[in-house]
Design a protein around this nucleic acid. Structure first.
Length: 426
RNA sequence: GGAGAGGUGGCCGAGUGGCCGAAGGCAGCUGCCUGCUAAGCAGUUAAUCGGGUAAAACCGGUUCUAGGGUUCGAAUCCCUACCUCUCCGCCA
């Protein structure tokens, strides 16, 4: 189980250290280098011993076959065997140490990613749509949502605690319409294959996409079975082909899925928590691509376009920001955030995050492909992007399309999904 | 939950202690032949680690689900875990 290419770290320790610093991560490069050197030392010693054992053992076989005595050799090999066992044990320890260190190594940011520390250093690269003006004070989505009888936060807390909510009547229907609309767009127009995925996955999958060990605290974990609730369909989708060698003509793979997402959001209580913009369970439509390395940055741009298409169709103003190194997630090499404008909150809400992980996830999950028929294996690049997260999209619609009298106009493209309905009212 | 079977290379599938990195088939690749969307013949094709090289070649180690054990030596014997399949039961 690797993360960064060990050879790359060995040869470019300073590059790796700088990248870790830029990301604001802590990972022990020097510790890795020391352990790595120790590992190779042990390997060369133990391999010599094993080579010796292999030759002698073959001779023993020959002697025995000829009915001759081989007791002396056997006694000698017994000693060699013990020695080998000894070194093998040491080797195992060192490798365990190395693997652990590697699992905590973040991905390297791409050279086009701006260096920065926080959210404030992200760079806006695009703005789309006009921010609507209202002749009244626009209400927040939780206000307008309740007014139309579509949102019930109070009873969510009753049943499950804070961070959970009910969608009722028109709210539930609107969400279902949004899900179908998004899936149809991505499958029919953007060429993704729709997939229904498991919502509960094993530790290997979580490690594969990089949620654990680093982000383990944010995940819901079922102890009894050692299974996790997915924080995003990315985990199931990207891990779908883990440990496999894909044939060259099967790339690029473009798959998408709707799923619930579960996040503990540990330590994020406080402000920014009103309404449904930060909750423990929500729905999301997710797109995943598995592509050849050469094309991954082109594919990232297309992926962003696929997510943008949803916002544009819905007529929601948004901006696109490229995340700076410090805001970039552990596993990503480059990431764009799409944020829609919510006039009721007067805030930009992140509804999609589109990332290129390069070969980081592929290495972790040992996902490979053949570069050509009968050719060598290599790690493909993996990407994913939301298309989109439902609660914040819902918030965007409620706040942008509200009327003075407390109704909500349904965006045109959603109407066919709602039996032709045009307005939601209480 | 009960009973049974099984996990081998890109896939299928043989192999019960040394001559097995592993027969055979399929798929792939390379030639030959054939003049016709094909068939035939011959050869060839695992992954990974260490060393080596400008890169190869090359040398060596490991790997037959995983982990432990027996042995001079394990795909092959023993133990444990996990997974898959079949039958029965239960259940949306």
């Amino acid at each position: 189980m690797k993360v960064l290419d060990p050879k790359f770290i060995r040869q470019n320790p300073d590059v790796v250290k700088q990248a870790i610093a830029n990301k604001g991560e802590k990972a022990d490069v020097d510790g890795f280098l020391a352990a790595d050197e120790k590992r190779r030392e042990i390997i060369s010693t133990v391999e010599k011993l094993k080579a010796e054992r292999n030759t002698v053992t073959a001779e023993i076989a020959k002697l025995k076959k000829g009915g001759q005595n081989a007791d002396e050799m056997i006694a000698k090999m017994r000693a060699v065997g013990d020695e080998i066992a000894n070194y093998d044990k040491k080797l195992q320890e060192v490798e365990a140490e190395i693997n652990n260190l590697l699992l905590w190594m973040p991905n390297m940011p791409h050279s086009s990613v701006p260096v920065g520390k926080t959210d404030a250093d992200n760079v806006e690269v695009k703005k789309w749509g006009e921010i609507k003006t209202f002749d009244f004070k626009p209400r927040s989505h939780w206000e307008i949502g309740e007014m139309i009888g579509g949102l019930d936060i109070k009873h969510g807390a009753t049943v499950s605690g804070s961070g959970f909510y009910f969608l009722t009547g028109p709210g539930a229907r609107l969400e279902r319409a949004l899900i179908n609309f998004m899936l149809d767009l991505h499958t029919l127009k953007h060429g993704y294959t729709e997939v229904m995925v498991p919502y509960i996955v094993g530790p290997n999958a979580m490690r594969g996409t990089g949620q654990i060990p680093k982000l383990a605290e944010d995940m819901y974990h079922i102890e009894k079975e050692d299974l996790y609730l997915i924080p995003t369909a990315e985990v199931s989708l990207t891990n779908m082909f883990a440990e496999e060698i894909l044939q060259p003509d099967s790339l690029p793979k473009k798959i998408c899925a709707f799923s619930p997402c579960f996040r503990r959001e540990a330590g994020s209580y406080g402000k920014e928590n009103r309404g449904i913009v930060r909750v423990h369970q929500f729905h999301k439509v997710e797109m995943v691509k598995i592509v050849e390395p050469d094309s991954s940055y082109d594919e990232l741009e297309k992926l962003v376009g696929n997510a943008e298409a949803v916002l544009q169709a819905l007529g929601l103003p948004y901006r696109v920001r490229i995340l700076c190194t410090g805001d970039l997630s552990f596993a990503a090499a480059k990431c764009y955030d799409l944020e829609l404008y919510a006039p009721g909150m007067d805030a930009w809400l992140e509804v999609s995050s589109c990332s290129n992980f390069e070969d980081f996830q592929a290495r972790r999950m040992n996902l490979r492909y053949r570069t050509e028929k009968g050719g060598k294996t290599a790690f493909p690049h993996t990407l994913n992007g939301s298309g989109l997260a439902l609660p914040r999209t819902m918030a965007g619609i409620l706040e942008n399309y509200q009327t003075k009298s407390g109704e909500v106009i349904i965006p045109e493209p959603l109407r066919p999904y709602m039996g032709g309905l045009e307005v939601l009212k209480g």
